[in-house]
Simulated scan of single mutants.
Amino acid sequence: MDKLLALNMFVETVRCGGYSAAARKLGIATSSVTRQVAALEADLGAVLLSRSTRHNTPTDAGANYFERAVSILEAVAHADSLVSDRGEARGRLRISVPVEFGRRVIAPHIGRFLATYPELNVSLSLSDEIIDLSKERVDVSVRLGTAVSSDDIVCKPVGQFERWIVGSPSYLVQARLPETPLDLLEHPCLKFDYGSAQQNWQFRKGDELFSVAVTGRLQSNNADILREAALDDQGLTLLADWLVMDDVREGKLTRVLPDFQVNPGNANASINVMFLPNHRGSSRIRVFVEFLQELLSHR
């Protein structure tokens, strides 16, 4: 039995909640996972997982063993990275980015990144959810807005963006063009879903600060849904400049209140990369961060 291989399959089974899900994540047959975990249990003389038709959950012994197994696998990965991930960028790089940022900013240039680093294998996942880097086995994550403050995560700002309030020209012909932030109270606002029905947009102009509790009938956790609704004359929305810049340039959307900096609630407009502390000095992460910084510098 390959003990490290068995440990990895046991850990993934616990994380995924079952043999089949772990096998899908690892890209192998379910029978391979069950065989390795069974061999590990036989070697230990202990039952690590309880079996059911739907889920495989750790026993008390399995839960204790899982925590130590994770530490062992992380230590091995860290030791490997110290040796193999400090020179030329090579191997697998797992990246997580917000959905529309990935589609609009990174996707048009990913081919150039792959061509520049032919020894890298890239797994690019698009998600607007805040993920657990360790649990999801992600090397580097891009997140927009307020930086994470934690000893468990390295958070590095790599750029800035602006949020623009936009509406379609035809909508703005029907409705009165907002001249002040308070005028938004007279408009249906298309809001990003941050988990609360109530939402304030914060406006700053010099030393002046305004907070407006916007209302509207549409709320979505996908920015492009809000963009499409704005293009379809449904109201005003607050979106990242990189998402609507081309629409504004082509006259499909009009920016309103351009003299104000605007953000939802207390969020800021920074672009951050996040990775685990044991990935400091990783050449794979370094080249991706440099690639992203270069992209953002030419916007």
Rank of each mutant, 00 (worst) to 15 (best):
N263A: 14
V214W: 03
P169K: 03
G18S: 02
V148C: 10
R90Q: 13
L82Q: 12
K156H: 13
A42E: 14
T13R: 01
R94K: 13
A115L: 08
T254S: 10
F260V: 05
P264G: 11
G62K: 01
L231I: 03
E136P: 00
G27H: 03
V33M: 04
L126N: 08
D193P: 04
G111N: 08
L40R: 04
V83E: 08
T53Y: 12
R204H: 12
S150D: 12
D80E: 13
L231E: 02
T57V: 13
Y194K: 07
V122W: 02
G111K: 06
S196P: 09
G102L: 01
A63Q: 14
I72Y: 12
L93F: 07
L144H: 06
R35Q: 11
L48N: 01
A269N: 14
Y65Q: 11
V262D: 02
L239E: 00
V83P: 02
A63N: 11
D183T: 10
T116Y: 00
H109P: 02
P258H: 07
A230L: 03
E67H: 14
T30P: 10
D233K: 01
E119H: 10
E41Y: 05
R286I: 05
T34H: 08
S96H: 10
G91H: 03
L295G: 03
Q160G: 03
W164S: 07
G265A: 09
R24D: 11
M1I: 09
L236R: 05
S168P: 00
L296E: 06
N222S: 14
L238V: 07
H109A: 09
H109C: 02
Q198D: 15
F161R: 06
N266I: 08
M1L: 09
L257C: 09
A63G: 09
L93C: 03
F101R: 06
I130D: 15
Q36A: 15
D247M: 01
S283H: 04
E88I: 10
L172H: 00
E67F: 06
L295Q: 07
N272V: 05
Q174C: 07
V148R: 14
K135F: 15
S282L: 05
M245A: 15
E228R: 14
